[in-house]
Design a protein around this nucleic acid. Structure first.
Lengths: 148, 148
DNA sequence: TCGATTATGTCAAAGTCCTGACATTGAATC
DNA sequence: GATTCAATGTCAGGACTTTGACATAATCGA
């Protein structure tokens, strides 16, 4: 794209635009890296969260990965068919079925993490170390400001 | 989601996760606000870019809004049907058809901008003014690090 | 205790977006 | 000038995501 006269009041310089652009770049890099491991970004996110918090339900995972329950349902069916996660067909109480990683799921996740963490390192290496904490905090501030 | 024991080495504290979360919050807020104006986020982005840089082609707009040409094609057909943009059926040279906003398109955009800019103000108000510039720069640094 | 509210899992339909492919056009190279 | 090369617009197919809806189950309050 041609950017002849970037002005400060231009949309292209707004926070939202920059945020969107950074996210698009991250998403693109992750898409490409994860494809080699046979995973989509939502699938990877699901495995990652599940490794940190075993036993989460479908609705829990949906909230944690910022998609709807319906979307997560599709994601989980794919992961279950691939044998990377498992959840009981029935549960003693309630409807929520706790999900856990299979050994194969842990194996695939470990391999994918190498690729993804390398991408994240490229991001953090671009930021001055003493600014990183402030950056993370700003992310949270923005998120909170938008949620309330 | 329950976050019982947030640890520093947890995925949920990684830059990528925070970035994704902030983007999801922004996207959600914009979705909700733009629905009242009959626009989707990609449609709004298209109008916004077009207002700043009239005469852009479909491929130009796709790059500027981080979607594929195919997706932008669909977006533009919707906007054209709604009478918000226009582009010549034929062009003197080349294939690229320069697109411009219609008066109605400008009207809708102005109304939508009020809502969107209010959202963006909520974000920027949450950031210490002297840190805002550094934040924007960090966004760009991350984007560049991921692109190369 | 019982009704209302809330939360969960799932189905269906629609919309959105992407990958892959192709024809057309302009530019670059020889 | 002819031939590659890159870029554009578009079609087709599939994958992903969402909105809307419904039945089930836990929780809360009167």
């Amino acid at each position: 794209m041609a950017t002849p006269h970037p002005a400060d009041d231009d949309v292209l310089s707004h926070v939202g635009y920059r945020l969107k652009r950074a996210h698009a770049a991250l998403r693109g890099a992750m898409d490409k890296a994860l494809r080699e491991h046979g995973l989509t970004v939502p699938q990877y996110a699901c495995l990652e969260v599940l490794a940190a918090r075993p036993g989460m339900s479908n609705a829990d995972l949906a909230r944690a990965t910022f998609v709807t329950r319906q979307s997560m349902n599709v994601v989980m069916r794919g992961l279950q068919t691939a044998g990377l996660i498992e959840r009981p067909d029935t549960v003693e109480a309630g409807r929520a079925r706790p999900t856990t990683l299979t050994p194969e799921g842990r194996r695939v996740l470990r391999a994918a993490q190498k690729a993804v963490y390398a991408i994240e390192a490229r991001m953090t290496d671009a930021i001055a170390p003493r600014r990183l904490a402030a950056l993370l905090e700003d992310f949270d501030r923005m998120t909170r400001a938008l949620e309330e």
